[in-house]
Amino acid sequence: MLGERVVGGKKCSEVLGLLSRYLDGDLDADEHRWVVTHVEGCAACASFGSRFAEAIARLREEAAREGLPEGVGARLKARLRSAQSG
């Protein structure tokens, strides 16, 4: 990253590597503190971290909306009926 900084004793690249585990609540207390301290003092990582979290949230929301393509459920049911009766 251009202009990579050390904030809170951690480099931007180190914080980048921890982002997923931060999002999943999977960091130990020290790692969590490094990320929070770094992001409080690094606007670039704060901005990227929030866009990263937002994109993943969008992916989860989209999944909840998605249905089966037309006809797929009916054809599955017909195939199962045929197997059950045969």
């Binding site: 990253m1 251009l2 202009g3 980048l16 590597g17 990227f48 866009r51």
Partner: peptide
């Protein structure tokens, strides 16, 4: 991660899209 991050806009302070 850094290469992937750059593609994802990591460090790109001019595009807070």
């Amino acid at each position: 991660f850094e290469t992937l991050g750059r593609d994802a806009g990591w460090g790109d302070v001019d595009s807070p899209e």
